[in-house]
């Protein structure tokens, strides 16, 4: 067989290769869009959970423990849209930190102290919030950008 025997097949082969490349690019773009949406949703839920948590700790009468837990629970569901090897494990550790910070101490206690905004617990919540928001963006940038 000589090289000229392949010539009649070249246009079809190039078309197939082109289709493969375009398809791959489209899939990558679509996945990136999906994960951008997931990352943004994670950040929104983290912000919402922290806001509710802080309201709970400052003694807001309209904010209940179940609302705080529901928002934080939803955050975990959204974090799990990140695949295992593309950020999920790291993000879950940060989520565990956030849960500790917000639902630890005397959370759901009958003798819960109302905290001022300057309380160490509130500062810790703010610090952990910042860390998880950074990590969400960091994982997105590392794996999908």
């Amino acid at each position: 067989m000589s090289a000229t025997d392949f010539l009649p097949w070249m246009p079809s082969l190039l078309t197939l290769l082109g289709w493969f490349l375009v398809n791959h690019q489209n899939n990558t773009r679509e996945q990136r869009k999906e994960m951008r949406a997931a990352a943004d949703q994670c950040k929104n839920l983290a912000r919402e959970g922290v806001e509710l948590g802080m309201k709970y700790w400052v003694g807001d009468e309209d904010t209940h423990a179940w609302q705080v837990k529901a928002a934080l629970d939803e955050l975990e569901v959204e974090i799990c849209r990140f695949p295992d090897h593309k950020g999920r494990i790291k993000l879950l550790e940060h989520h565990a930190d956030l849960l500790d910070a917000i639902t630890g101490s005397d959370f759901e206690s009958a003798t819960r102290k109302v905290r001022p905004a300057t309380d160490p617990l509130m500062r810790n919540v703010a610090k952990v919030r910042q860390r998880i928001l950074h990590e969400i963006e960091n994982q997105f940038q590392t794996h999908y950008n």
Binding site: K69, A70, D73, F107
Partner: peptide, 10 residues
């Protein structure tokens, strides 16, 4: 179970 607070789990 509902999400358990860290106070319960700890």
């Amino acid at each position: 179970t509902e999400l358990a607070g860290s106070s319960f789990l700890e």
